[in-house]
């Protein structure tokens, strides 16, 4: 795991680095410490990271704007801050975890665990996904997202009105921030299940999901049974549309 620590107090940065080494052990590929976000951003432009540990109050500045920039990045953001009154807003903006100061090694380990567990789910409190557009950060309400399509190192958010927004995170990382109503239906798709109209099984193990707006998305062979069980146990839209 590649970790970047952004913290203006050297002793706290030392503590975070020491804990990260102890918690992650050999899994820690690299750790970089910066005292300002600008300084860390320069580093991040050339060195991809998996997790950024970010203090919300760097040199007396309110870190919310900075946070919007951070969560639009390809990495997971974990806030380590004394500003607990900003925790709710941070989760809304899509941080993976919020570790209040002063912190213990166990609490930090829990945060790292969220970042490393496959298909990890955050607190499900995210209401927005931050996307970088024309050099600015825009917040896309998660309510408007129909499904997310993986595109290599990026993910494409497809919205109810048909717009498509490119997110710098991978599909896995975006999925980790989304609420449980989103399911992984294919290696390249995460779909809002309440938008599904029917599950179609075609010839040659070819499966498709039909959304209420008529869009058809492929379903992974391994995912089919899981989805079928989910739809049967769930509410009518999927069950009624099942065709064999």
């Amino acid at each position: 795991m590649r970790v970047v620590i952004i913290e203006d107090e050297p002793l706290i940065a030392q503590r975070l680095e020491r804990f990260a080494r102890e918690i992650l052990g050999e899994r820690l590929e690299s750790v970089r410490v910066g005292s300002t976000f600008e300084e860390a951003s320069v580093w991040l432009a050339d060195h991809p990271a998996d997790v950024v540990l970010l203090d919300l109050n760097l040199h007396g500045r309110d870190g919310l704007k900075l946070l919007e920039t951070a969560v639009a990045g390809s990495f997971h953001t974990i806030i380590v801050s004394a500003n607990t009154d900003r925790a709710l807003r941070a989760f809304e903006l899509g941080v993976l975890d919020f570790v209040p100061k002063p912190f213990t090694r166990e609490r930090l380990a829990h945060a790292f665990q969220r970042a490393t567990t496959r298909d990890a789910q955050a607190s499900c409190a995210a209401r927005f996904l931050a996307v970088r557009k024309h050099g600015r950060i825009e917040l896309v309400p998660i309510d408007q997202v129909l499904y997310v399509e993986g595109a290599g190192a990026y993910a494409e958010l497809v919205l109810a009105d048909g717009r498509r927004e490119l997110h710098e995170k991978t599909l896995e990382r975006v999925h980790a921030l989304l609420p449980p109503v989103f399911e992984r239906t294919h290696k390249s798709f995460v779909v809002r299940m309440t938008a599904v109209k029917a599950l179609h099984a075609g010839e040659g193990s070819h499966y498709e999901l039909e959304l209420k707006n008529g869009i058809r998305l492929p379903v992974g062979r391994q995912r089919y049974k899981e989805l079928l069980a989910l739809l049967v146990a769930g509410e009518p839209p999927a069950r009624a549309g099942q065709t064999h």
Partner: peptide, 18 residues
């Protein structure tokens, strides 16, 4: 008292204790 001064000071204190 909170949060920056006290909580940051306590966080640092944890490290200094170690």
């Amino acid at each position: 008292l909170q949060p920056h001064f006290l909580l940051n000071s306590l966080t640092v204190l944890g490290e200094v204790m170690d």
